[in-house]
């Protein structure tokens, strides 16, 4: 048994904190379980009784309905995975390339470039110029890159990364590296990257979530079903409902379009969330790694 270190908290406080976290965790996980249970409940039961945490009559027809087009689902998952993986990687590279010069206190243009990127967070020209750019200038219609490009550089993440560098990497590390004659790119990849693993993991996770959750770019740029992401494939039915409810006239016209039941809507949410829930533990490993490296070098 290891002796309790000086900085560790007492056992009662540990129990208290754990207790609080168990309650908080329940608040976070129960709704998710509810979504799953509703998705496997019999539809007529829901119409009568509302949602139940434990379904009284289990019925998998919602999934049967969704999985009739199994090829499309597998394909859409593949699209999502490809877009998310390559997008995250590219995005991390670009973010680091922007954050690193901003972090360098001796870099005379850092204020200008900080403002340059911050400004894009506030101002945008709206959807129309963006759409013209992507479809008519860059010609990315029906191109997977149209799903990747819009989220490559997020000012928010650049600024967080810069702040992390400033906080956790002492200037002396850089100074000595420069004295050793290391090039900037070398410093970035060989010194900054290992020291800043926690922030890379955090931003990597956030970017992954953004790519995975995005459906709007598929809506805008992809007209061929074979290239739409799983999120859009699932979400578009929700949007169809939204559209019909907001446009009674259109709904009256469409007439024969049947709005899917609530169980199917929930099943779609479950399928849409899909493997992203396991992304977190993947990135989590690096929080710890960063800690140890930081402890040695710091």
């Amino acid at each position: 048994m290891k002796k309790r270190s000086l900085t560790e908290i007492t056992i009662p406080s540990k129990i208290l904190i754990n207790l609080i976290f168990i309650i908080v965790s329940l608040i976070c996980i129960v709704p998710f379980i509810l979504v799953i249970s509703v998705s496997i409940t019999d539809e007529s039961i829901i119409m009568r009784e509302g949602y139940r945490l434990i379904p009284s009559v289990v019925n998998l027809s919602a999934y049967e309905y969704l999985f009739t087009d199994i090829n499309q689902i597998v394909r859409s998952y593949m699209i999502s995975i490809i877009v998310t993986a390559s997008g995250t990687l590219l995005s991390l590279i670009l973010t680091a390339m922007y954050a690193y010069p901003l972090y360098r206190k001796d870099f005379p243009f850092r204020k200008f470039f900080a403002f340059f990127i911050f400004f894009t967070m506030l101002f945008n020209g709206g959807l129309v110029p963006f759409y013209i750019m992507y479809t008519q200038v860059l010609n990315l219609r029906n191109n997977l890159f149209a799903l990747i490009m819009p989220f490559l550089l997020n000012p928010f993440f650049v600024i967080i990364m810069r702040t992390y560098f400033t906080q956790n990497i002492p200037d002396s590390v850089i100074e000595s590296a420069i004295l050793d004659g290391a090039g900037e790119l070398r410093i970035l990849t060989k010194i900054i990257l290992p020291l800043a693993m926690p922030v890379f993991a955090t931003i990597g996770l956030f970017v992954t979530i953004i790519y995975w959750n995005d459906w709007f770019m598929s809506l805008l740029f992809i007209s061929k079903n074979e290239n739409i992401s799983i999120q859009y494939y699932m979400y578009k039915t929700m949007l169809n409902i939204q559209f019909m409810l907001n446009n009674p006239q259109a709904a009256a016209m469409a007439g024969s379009i049947k709005i899917p039941s609530e169980t199917i809507r929930m099943a779609m949410a479950v399928v849409g969330i899909g493997p992203i829930v396991i992304a977190y533990p993947f990135f989590q490993r690096y929080f710890v790694k960063g800690l140890t490296v930081g402890a040695i070098k710091g």
Binding site: I117, F123, G183, L188
Partner: peptide, 24 residues
């Protein structure tokens, strides 16, 4: 060297954000 590192993301921002921004 630092400016060179900055240039790909800056070009990206110009294409992705600044040119469409003229839509204001």
């Amino acid at each position: 060297a630092l400016l060179l590192i900055l240039s790909p993301p800056v070009i990206y921002l110009i294409i992705n954000n600044y040119i469409p921004m003229l839509g204001v």
